[in-house]
Design a protein around this nucleic acid. Structure first.
Length: 460
DNA sequence: GGAACTCGCCAC
DNA sequence: AAACGTGGCGAGTTCC
């Protein structure tokens, strides 16, 4: 891509940011190599056993015969797709970009073939072993990993990371998270901490569109956008966050409706995902007792009692809520999106508050998303750079070691912990809005810490 | 034998 | 009118 900072300030941010990130790269992260190799071995054993089990199955035997008695390559999705959808003539749940029947996790599990679950288990373990553990060991020099952080590769002016990529280490899946993150340590007698720009993109978006409803949600600690939308989408009369069922639907709404809507998704996808992926409801007409549990019965019973009896009816319902979301609740935001895209069509570029310019061919969603993503990252980079400067100015031992778009990971000398935290808070609350006066909502950093000598798996 | 592709899957 | 944004990487496959 063409790097196109428009102003001297934009150039300075990248220059100073690159120096700070270079120091993080040079510092690196300690790898417990013996652990990584031990885990690698254990995973190989497990994979071997699962593979043997799979190869003994009638399903695999059928597959073998279908290709003339050759041993199938169980890691070839092309072969698997051919066997499932051309030989066995099963109906693929979805298609890949090139139109082939898909063999991703969602599609395979919908076929309800027990042997395929073994295959999915193998895939998961191989991902952990080959991408993460093997990558860590391959890239370590004298027991230290030095990942690269790039500022010049991403269309939105975010960063990327490689050799190894330190921005996609498993976190959500508990098992994968523990195996991978237990390999990574601070220097001896130090502790790892992670500071996170909370709701970075939503807040930065608000600086652009200045929607009063959104600004209220951000400023009012008692307001809860996700809960409000969950109540509306699932027709919950009295939302109660202390009920696990309501808490689950709140998180489903956040990840299945609100964020996708902000990225430019539309009601049909949202409705399908909310019903199927999160609500565990079938396609078509619903029966009693289906879906996830609710305080009184199942989700299907609850929705049927509200007059929504099928996925199609739910889609219509979600469409109405989407119209309300953009047409009433966040209408200022919606109007900003229209104006913003119109301006891109007219000029062929969009400018960021931070002095960068995104140009080139963009979709409507791109033209809206890029500046928000980029600007949110620039806030993080500003904080990271200023913190790095303070660390060296004061001669502290603590070191920034990594960064993941809206968070910074620091290897902290325990006696400096409160100095580091106070410095970050000051930079975020005072220096940042003073430097960039277009910031008109509070920007906050949340801090999580691990105890001394504990791995990245224990940050909380 | 390597470049470029597809697919799947990890993160934000 | 159209319809989810950004990356990196491993394995398999295709092309030259």
């Amino acid at each position: 891509m063409k790097l196109n900072p428009k102003t001297n300030d934009a150039y300075r941010l990248l220059h100073d940011g690159a120096l700070a990130l270079a120091r993080a790269e040079q510092q690196g992260i300690r790898l417990d190599e013996a652990y990584a190799k031990r885990k690698h071995f254990q995973l190989s054993k497990k994979i071997e056993i699962l593979e043997a089990k799979f190869r003994k199955s009638t399903f695999c035997e059928e597959w073998r015969l279908s290709i003339g008695g050759k041993s199938p390559n169980i890691y070839s999705n092309a072969q698997l797709s051919y066997f499932l959808y051309k030989i066995k003539k099963l109906r693929p749940a979805s298609a890949t970009q090139s139109g082939q029947g898909s063999t991703d996790e969602d599609s395979l599990s919908q076929l309800n073939i027990p042997e395929l679950d073994i295959l999915l288990q193998i895939r998961k373990l191989k991902k952990i072993r080959d991408t993460y553990l093997e990558g860590f060991v391959r890239e370590a020099v004298d027991g230290i990993i030095h990942p690269s952080f790039n500022l010049h590769l991403v269309r939105t002016f975010r960063s990327s990371s490689d050799r190894p990529n330190f921005q996609n280490i498993p976190k959500r899946d508990k098992e994968a998270m523990m195996i991978c993150r237990k390999a990574l340590f601070p220097r001896p007698n130090h502790q790892l901490i992670e500071v996170d720009l909370s709701g970075a993109e939503v807040r930065i978006a608000a600086c652009y569109h200045q929607d009063p409803t959104m600004i209220k949600y951000i400023n009012d600690p008692t307001a809860d956008m996700h809960a409000d939308m969950a109540s509306q989408l699932f027709m919950i009369d009295h939302f109660d966050k202390s009920l696990p069922e309501h808490k689950y639907l709140r998180s489903a709404t956040k990840n299945g409706f609100i964020f996708p809507q902000f990225y430019g998704d539309y009601y049909k996808n949202c409705a399908e995902n909310m019903a199927h992926k999160w609500g565990k409801l079938s396609k078509g007409r619903w029966k009693s007792g289906q879906g996830i549990a609710m305080p009184n019965g199942s989700l299907s019973d609850h929705l049927i009692s509200k007059g929504i009896k099928s996925l199609e009816a739910f889609e219509t319902h979600v469409k109405k809520i989407e119209d309300d979301f953009w047409g009433r609740r966040f209408r200022v935001y919606a109007k900003w999106k229209d104006r913003w895209y119109a301006r891109y069509l007219r000029y062929g570029y969009v400018d960021l508050f931070t002095g960068f310019r995104c140009s080139g061919i963009m979709s409507r969603n791109d033209s809206i998303n890029y500046p928000i993503q980029g600007t949110a990252f620039h806030c993080l980079l500003f904080i990271l750079t200023a913190l790095d400067k303070e660390i060296f100015r004061n001669g502290w031992e603590s070191r920034i070691i990594s960064q993941v778009h809206d968070s910074i990971i620091i290897d902290v000398e325990p006696r400096e912990l409160s100095l580091i935290i106070n410095t970050i808070k000051y930079i975020t609350a005072v220096d940042l809005p003073k430097t960039w006066n277009w910031i008109n909502v509070p920007i906050e950093m949340a801090i999580e810490t691990a105890e001394v000598n504990r791995s990245l798996a224990y940050i909380k």
